[in-house]
Computed example of a mutant assay.
Amino acid sequence: MTATTGRPTTPDGGRRRTVPGPSFAHLTRLSDDTGLFEHARHAIVRREHGYCTDDVARGLVVTSREPDPPAEVLRLAERYLGFLTHAQDAAGAFHNRLGHDRRWTDQPGLGDWWGRALWGLGTAAARSPAAWIREEALVAFTRGAARRSPAPHAMAFAGLGAAEVLRRHPAHAAAAALLTDAATAVGAPGADPRWPWPQPRLTYANAALAEVVIAASQLRHGGPPLDEGLRMLAWLRDVQLLDGHLSVVPAGGWRRGAARLRHDQQPIEVAAFADACATAVTVTGDLGWEAGVRHAVDWFLGGNDVGTAMWDPATGGGYDGLTPHGPNLNQGAESTLALISTLQHARRWS
């Protein structure tokens, strides 16, 4: 059963929608005693595609964010933590892909999955109500935090994990150094108000880059000015609002000077925007950023370009993408995790 917050959301002043509480039913359906399966056909798991560290790490983020998790959700967190510690090598890098035969199909590396693994581990180390999860997660995070990736997105995800650790352990030197380096890897916004983004192209989970700069400005002495991260996020918000609803940069991205396409839109983009706006509220105390979270929640409930719900109330799963003709009805791990993550932020209105 899916609970509701009891509060409607009306970011555009339109019809009122009741916000459901986050459901872990489909996430449980996608999980087994090893980890979290990546893909589904509609709501049915596609086991042949195996598991990936990217999704398991995101699973650890959302299960660790639950303030009072039921036993089932705590078991999921333990399982995901076990997967990540198994994926990590002695030098702090991570495998990303595990087949259904329980064999790794790649070598340990420092791609985006490394960053997300540190994000998951950092969140568990800071927020899990279970001491044994916090302790093991912090050991694995510390080992991985000694490494650096050349990819700005990977560094941004890792930096978000470092920010979580620093909120609980302000003197954690490895987390402090990693957060500083993550903000540096993202870069400073440019002077052109038409394109202040540090990179010439928006790709995916774009708001995570702004979020890590905002977090670094709060948690690191001598970090980037808060205004830099807020300016990035404000511009991203403005270019993704269309007729009062959220219309996020599609999977194909958007390059400076090029025409912007509207589809296919991915739930991960919406979840990253909700996370960043929630962090902006926490750091600045400016409740105006809550409107961004409400727009993100409403995107899943039908406040989007097509005017259709992007989740299945019967399963608790999130749909994989928004096409010009409606949702892609497959309910894979990434989209379901994005739904849960976004709905978790709606608790601030309860």
Rank of each mutant, 00 (worst) to 15 (best):
Y80F: 15
F157Y: 14
R255S: 11
L81D: 04
A210H: 09
H49E: 02
T308V: 15
F157C: 14
S217W: 07
S149C: 12
A131R: 15
G190Y: 10
R168W: 08
P20V: 06
L337F: 00
V45R: 00
R16P: 11
Y319D: 10
R237I: 08
V306W: 05
V186L: 05
W113I: 05
A309D: 09
E290R: 15
G302T: 12
A124M: 08
E66H: 15
A158D: 01
D320N: 14
L202K: 07
T5N: 09
E334V: 02
G303V: 11
P200I: 10
T323W: 09
P129V: 09
T4P: 01
A43Y: 01
A259C: 07
W235V: 09
V56N: 05
L98K: 00
W132T: 15
W311Y: 12
V270G: 02
D32A: 00
G285A: 12
P129G: 01
A154F: 01
A258P: 07
L241W: 07
L322W: 04
P193R: 10
L202D: 07
H153E: 14
T279L: 13
G292R: 12
A163Y: 00
E72Y: 02
P152E: 07
A124I: 02
A57N: 01
Q199H: 14
D33E: 14
L226P: 09
L241N: 06
A296R: 12
A171Q: 13
H172P: 09
P152M: 04
V45C: 00
L230W: 07
P69N: 06
E228T: 12
R220M: 10
H221P: 13
R231I: 08
